[in-house]
């Protein structure tokens, strides 16, 4: 269980997150939606430790994350797929995947091979192109690689930052459905940040609507997607 309470993150005293509280239940997909600049990415970056909050708490399996370094947060089972298909384009596909599991190499060598194999089964195209530079991949393939890099560390919580950004609708739907299946099959907890609310709410169990750094709605995904007044007020359609 991920429990966030009264989280505040500031940039030069501008509050990007202004007292955020919500919970993400284990084994479910929780989606965070909102307009541009609502604080969605900042939220994920604060959870993974890339930004330090000025107050509030992030509890993950009874551990307080706010005082931990990025590396220890990752090692506690939280993997983030950052915005913009973040892969290291000069490294090969296989190296990018290897990188994700590197810190587990000493203690889980056997399992790492299994995890790598599973990731390739999930995205066979990556196996075909495993020796090519990640920079030569298409946008969708890069996003698959970024997700693979995160998955190979066998996270218990996956943070996805706008996986459909810049992708053709068909490809983003494919990626999101793969994540959805994975979550249902393995009990992975997913926190999905999306600007494309429809896609996200279609697969999610629970929805959080952010506006200007505040939570304005915290509802089951079905109710949130049915509430046309909320959508009209905060998402503009």
């Amino acid at each position: 269980m991920l429990a966030i309470s009264n989280l505040v993150t500031e940039f030069d005293s501008v509050k990007a997150l202004d007292g955020i509280s919500f919970q993400a239940k284990p084994g479910l997909i929780t989606t965070v939606i909102g307009a541009n600049g609502a604080g969605k990415s900042t939220l994920l970056r604060t959870i993974s430790g890339l930004e330090k909050p000025s107050s509030g708490s992030i509890k993950w399996q009874d551990q307080e994350l706010t005082s931990m370094s990025v590396e220890s947060i990752v090692r506690s089972g939280i993997a983030q797929v950052p915005e913009g298909h973040a892969v290291i384009s000069q490294l090969s596909v296989a190296e990018n995947i290897e990188l994700g599991g590197l810190f587990r190499r000493r203690s889980f060598r056997g399992d790492l091979a299994v995890a790598t194999k599973e990731v390739y089964e999930l995205f066979p195209i990556l196996y075909e192109r495993r020796n090519e530079a990640a920079g030569s991949l298409s946008g969708g393939e890069r996003q698959m690689l970024a997700i693979s890099r995160a998955l190979v560390s066998r996270p218990k919580l996956l943070l996805l930052d706008e996986p459909s950004l810049g992708l053709a609708p068909m490809i983003s739907a494919q990626i999101i459905s793969i994540v959805n299946n994975l979550c249902r099959a393995t009990g992975l907890t997913v926190l999905l940040v999306e600007q494309n609310a429809n896609t996200a709410l279609a697969v999610a169990d629970h929805g959080i609507l952010l506006a200007l750094g505040k939570v304005v709605a915290d509802l089951p995904a079905k109710e949130l997607s049915a509430d046309s007044s909320l959508r009209a007020a905060y998402l503009g359609y």
Partner: peptide, 24 residues
């Protein structure tokens, strides 16, 4: 070696490397 990969990765993109759990 894994350490060599970690070193190349952290030179190229420290943020993604940190997010892979490596102590940059």
């Amino acid at each position: 070696t894994g350490m060599g990969l970690a070193m190349r990765a952290s030179a190229l993109n420290p943020e993604v490397t940190r997010l892979s759990g490596i102590k940059v």
